[in-house]
């Protein structure tokens, strides 16, 4: 969603769609473009883990809210497929605005988060990007990150994981403002690859940071 297609048109990516609404699954399948090869579908946590283990897709489009399993939703699917994390990437899809839902799947290992309202072409781009090992941030996720890490740049004394660097903050701000990766690169006079590096670094911090605010903030949001 945040840029133009990266992969060459010939390349196809094998994808499993996990969502509990059959209508949404079929709609999404119809919307995705030719680069995407849907090799499996699942509607519950247990189904999803089984299908993913069998089909071994490159990317899983994963709804955050799923029935079944222990009630953990998308997070449980990712932890259930932990052995495949090296070869399979997860892209979270959600209608939920609740930060803790999104952050929970990101921290479980998802490579990005997009809202369900974006177009099929944008989702296809995001899938390609995730398949290439990059992270996909929607403006809203960038907003969550800025909210959690604060908008002040890191001091040198701070733990590296607990703060965003000045450059990462700039990138996050631009993404929150609706810039595509390409536009971010142009605005900051850096290459798209560098933007991707920054975004991946932010994703890593979001996943690994034990930052007090991150947990506290998620806990607060849970009270909504």
């Amino acid at each position: 969603m945040n840029g133009t297609p990266e992969g060459t048109p010939e390349r196809t990516v094998r994808v499993v769609i996990v969502d509990d609404h059959a209508i949404f699954r079929s709609g999404l399948k119809a919307d995705l473009d030719a680069r995407i090869d849907v090799v499996g579908e699942a509607g519950t946590v247990d189904q999803a883990i089984a299908v993913i283990a069998e089909a071994r897709p490159e990317v899983v489009l994963l709804d955050v809210h799923l029935p079944g399993g222990l009630g953990g939703g998308g997070r449980e699917v990712i932890s259930g497929s932990a052995t495949l994390l090296g070869s399979t990437s997860f892209l979270a899809l959600s209608v939920s605005d609740a930060a803790e839902d999104v952050v929970a799947v990101i921290r479980a290992g998802a490579r990005g988060y997009v809202t369900k309202t974006i177009s099929g072409a944008e989702i296809s781009d995001a899938v390609m990007r995730v398949a290439d090992g990059d992270a996909v941030f929607s403006p809203r996720l960038a907003g969550f990150v800025l909210d959690a890490f604060g908008t002040a740049p890191a001091d040198i004394a701070d733990d590296e994981l607990d703060r965003l660097s000045a450059r990462e903050l700039e990138v996050m701000r631009l993404i929150a403002r609706g810039y595509s990766y390409k536009e971010v690169a142009k605005e900051l006079f850096i290459s798209i690859k560098t933007v991707e590096t920054h975004v991946s670094a932010v994703l890593r911090k979001l996943q690994l940071s034990s930052r007090h605010e991150l947990t506290k903030w998620a806990a607060e949001r849970r009270l909504l």
Binding site: P139, R173, G178
Partner: peptide, 19 residues
């Protein structure tokens, strides 16, 4: 297309971007 609005508020002030 979509209009993106980003609001950032802190003690120092508020900024809004409309794209």
């Amino acid at each position: 297309g979509t209009v993106s609005v980003y609001l950032e508020s802190s003690d120092a002030g508020s900024e809004i971007f409309i794209k």
